[in-house]
Simulated assay, not measured.
Amino acid sequence: MSTPATLGYRRRQLPTRSMRHGSACERGAAVPGSAAPGGPHGAVDSGRIRRMRRLMVFLLVMAVAGCGDGDATGTGATEQFTQGGVSMEPTVKAGQVVTARKVTGTYEARRGDVVLLRSPGGLWGDRKAPLLKRVVAVGGETIACCDTSGKVTVDGKPLAEPYVAEDASLDEPPNPNYCGPRRFAAVSVPADSVFVMGDSRARSNDSRCAGPVPVSSVLAVMVD
């Protein structure tokens, strides 16, 4: 296995975590039988059993519906990665090992997720090693910086970002070719895309100068 780039990760396979007790999806559920008991009340009991059977089938269908994939919240194997750069400090420090859950299906974008992504090319370059960034806006939202207090806004509302300890300079004007300034012009995030930034804004190359990332580029979501 080749050594990853400085800002990438070293993959180490981690076995999928098993649940102490099987979930409803794993265990399945028993559906009452259809045989009616004998005796003078057989017809009444048979009606009750049919109603109970319909209810149990409905509950089973609802349980199975909640077991689908398409995100990285409760499904998908986990892997460990070693952060190679400083762009996500102080949340993730250089050299820190993190656990991420692999995306199965299509990533369901959620603001605040710390995601592992592959470079989509273009202004992101042709990096081979994955990148670790935070989702700050999702498809359909408009993100900009800054408001009068220097905060990032999404759809005109300022974001509370306690995870940002080292912000970029407010003195520099926006520069679409350079991620140094904190300020950037409003960006309408396309559908099925995310706008990502590093938590260390002063030391991160991200969507401020490289643009939004397709959700198809998201490989995993950090869980630990």
Rank of each mutant, 00 (worst) to 15 (best):
P190H: 03
S216W: 01
L117R: 04
S2E: 08
R53L: 08
M56E: 14
G122Q: 10
V215I: 08
L219S: 04
K133F: 10
Q96P: 09
D147H: 11
P4E: 10
T99H: 00
R50P: 01
G85R: 03
V103F: 01
V196H: 09
V218A: 04
T73E: 09
A160E: 14
V187E: 13
V31Y: 02
Y163T: 08
A144F: 00
V97Y: 04
T75C: 01
V114F: 00
D192C: 02
R17H: 08
Q80V: 14
A72G: 05
L131A: 10
V98M: 05
A36M: 07
T153W: 03
G76L: 08
N177C: 01
K128P: 06
R51Q: 08
A36Q: 11
A202F: 03
G8S: 11
G74I: 02
A137M: 01
G105F: 00
A36G: 08
R118L: 13
V221A: 07
R17P: 15
A36P: 12
F184T: 02
S193V: 01
P214Q: 07
S200W: 09
M56T: 15
A94Y: 02
R118C: 02
L55H: 10
S18M: 11
T148I: 04
E166Q: 13
V154G: 00
K151I: 03
L131N: 04
A63F: 14
S193H: 15
G47D: 03
V221K: 08
N177W: 00
K93V: 13
R134W: 09
S18C: 07
T78M: 04
R12F: 14
M197N: 04
A202N: 15
T6R: 11
K93L: 14
A35W: 13
L131C: 03
G139T: 03
V114W: 01
A137G: 03
A220W: 02
M62W: 12
K151D: 12
R182Y: 05
V92M: 00
T73A: 11
A160D: 14
V136P: 00
G95N: 10
C145S: 10
